[in-house]
Amino acid sequence: MSEVNSTFIAQESRKGEGRGSRPSAAFRARQDKAARRAFLVVTILPILLILVVAAALFARAWPILSAYGLPSLLFGKVWKPNNGQFGFLPFILGTVWVTLVGALLSVPACLLAAVYLAEYAHSRTRAMTKPILDVLAAIPPVVYGAWGLIAIVPFVDEVLAPLCDRWLGFIPLFAVNQPTGFGILAGGIVLAVMVAPLIISVAFEVFSTVPNDLRHASLAVGATQWQTIRNIVLPQAKPGIIAAIVLAASRAFGETVAVLMVVGNVPNIPTSIFDSAYPLPALIANNYGEMMSIPLYDAALLSAALVLLAVILIFNILSTLVLQRVLRRK
């Protein structure tokens, strides 16, 4: 394509001589070729970077992986680096709990909001909502954490915990074992708000890929709008919505600072949403200072990062592949 163009230019520019300062056609063709090559190298970088990150973490984690083996790290219940015990299970479960609670709180509200924006809302409402979501997405994690300390932890401590203790305390899942407010529920609430803009905007995109013809076909036989949404739009959007949820879950899974500030950070295996938890990212973040003094400590933390990376890569690649396919339909 470019060669064809440049021969064409070569003839043209001879005719148009006297305009002076334009570079010669040959130079421009060479410039184009060089640029193409340079650009190509640059596009390999993203893929390379993923591999390099994984490889570097793996290399630094290798001492402990080879000494203990992955299963005993993943399923070990005791974390006592001083005794050489490195069990990730409490941390992995802590991450899973916080992520699940966050997703359970966030997903229903966000999907409803996204359906409303895509199917019912006036374009003015949509235009007003966008900056709100943008700002929510722009607020730094540490500010979310601060908000958690100011509002959510006291709210859990003074309102939710007493309420649940009184009415639902007999269910282990809602038992209040250590009433501080810091814990899985607080972390989950903060996460729920953090991932909301992502879920809403991706779900909105997914809903807008459903062709209007289908909506009209359903409305034309006298279906109400909700009947149309439930019978036609939602089934069509399902793969994309699931992908959006998985994407948001992987974002929640790796969230560090905001969660770490409100979740309590006690390495126990939690049994109730009011229990403290110690998520994997918080483990990495909290221990960077001391890691050099204890043998294998740095390798343990970097293998924690590796586990985190592996889980998130799987989630991310799957959801992104689905979303790429879904959103291309537009």
Partner: peptide, 11 residues
């Protein structure tokens, strides 16, 4: 009832 310009079978 409406018969649209393009046939729109439901999925």
């Amino acid at each position: 009832g409406l018969l649209a310009q393009r046939p729109s079978p439901l999925p």
